[in-house]
């Protein structure tokens, strides 16, 4: 019995035999119903393309203002960093730090690390620091909250719409697109990267023996 043909449910410890899935199929645990694994919807090239796209959109979302607010001839506009900075200034530092981590630093780190790992694997090389990067990617996943921030901007728009004139700016649309891209990136099965890394490492070892 090869251990690699087995899957253990993370949620209830039940052991299953791995089967090949049809596209878009998901394997669920027979005991607790949790998802065990899903058919690899996208290959590594698609992942890399989506990661690069999200890097570009991330820059746009952070450079351009999100919303402009006009009251009696005075216009205020704010970017994400404007909001973080204003929150810091208003005396609730920990909240500003939390927002900076969950909407800026973690998503950015995810994008950069995914991009680097995918790029190296696709070139047939083992990425440096692969194991640490993979742990970081797994731990950061629940703390990356661009989609929650997106909903927050919509709630804010409605909240202040009665008070002053609100104009949505490029930033809000960029955050909308970024939400979709990051949701896709966050649904990548990290085990596919482990498998790809094992293949690359095995190839590298074989090449080393030949040389």
């Amino acid at each position: 019995m090869r251990a690699s043909s087995l899957v253990v449910c993370e949620h209830c410890d039940a052991v299953h035999e791995r089967r090949r899935l049809a596209p878009r199929e998901r394997a669920l645990c027979v005991r607790c119903g949790a998802e065990l694994y899903r058919a690899g919807g996208v290959d590594l090239y698609t992942m890399l393309a989506l990661t690069l796209a999200s890097l570009i959109v991330f820059v746009i979302a952070n450079v351009y203002p999100i919303i402009t607010l006009e009251l009696q001839g005075v216009a205020n506009r704010s970017t994400l960093w404007g909001a973080i900075h204003a929150t810091w200034e208003t005396g609730v530092g920990p909240v500003a730090v939390l927002a900076a981590l969950t909407v800026f630093f973690f998503p950015l780190a995810q994008i950069l690390m995914f991009g680097y790992v995918l790029f190296e694997l696709l070139r047939g090389r083992a990425p440096r620091g692969f194991v640490d990067i993979m742990h970081a990617l797994r731990l950061m996943r629940p703390w990356s909250m661009v989609e929650v921030f997106m909903l927050g901007t919509l709630v804010s728009v409605v909240k202040i719409a009665g008070l002053a004139q609100v104009t949505p700016e490029i930033g809000i649309f960029a955050f909308g697109v970024l939400t979709i891209l990051l949701t896709t990136i966050n649904s990548f099965d990290l085990r596919l990267l482990w498998d790809a890394h094992e293949r690359v490492a095995a190839d590298g070892a074989a090449a080393g023996l030949v040389a």
């Binding site: 205020n76 929150t87 929650v148 901007t153 709630v155």
Partner: peptide, 23 residues
């Protein structure tokens, strides 16, 4: 993570609604 919603709403309102004495 969805409970963070209100935190982000307040952060944005603080940045935007900043018209000195008016509001």
């Amino acid at each position: 993570q969805w409970s963070m919603l209100d935190v982000f709403v307040v952060a944005l309102l603080v940045a935007l609604v900043n018209f000195q004495s008016v509001a």
